[in-house]
């Protein structure tokens, strides 16, 4: 889960996984994905018991909105 200077740099990266061609995400989408409501409560005293359990459903909703509905993004089998 890394940042790169551009998609071209990702593809040139020595450890690029050719099966991860769908692994790109635009920075504004990433900020949205990691800026959901639960993330805004990480400093709350009850974050772990109240907010963290809501995270999975929230993440899935964002991924669906972004059109990232493949197993790769929603939770994957082990890489082949």
């Amino acid at each position: 889960m890394n940042l790169f200077r551009s998609e071209e740099h990702v593809r040139r990266w020595s450890q690029f996984n050719p099966a991860a061609e769908e692994g790109f995400i635009a920075l504004p989408d990433l900020a949205s994905f990691f800026g959901t409501e639960t993330r805004q409560h990480m400093l709350d005293a009850d974050y772990l018991s109240v907010w963290y359990p809501r995270r999975a459903a929230e993440r899935r909703a964002v991924l669906e909105r972004l059109g990232k509905t493949s197993p790769f993004w929603l939770g994957t089998p082990a890489p082949s």
Binding site: N2, L3, R5, A20, L27, Q40, G75, T76, P77
Partner: peptide, 26 residues
């Protein structure tokens, strides 16, 4: 990358992109 309250303020270079190399989980 600079951010404030969730907003992107600075992105240099503007082409910065995120990449997931093995899918979530593994």
């Amino acid at each position: 990358v600079e951010m404030r309250d969730g907003r992107l303020l600075t992105v240099n270079p503007r082409s910065v992109v995120g990449h997931l190399n093995y899918g979530f989980g593994p």
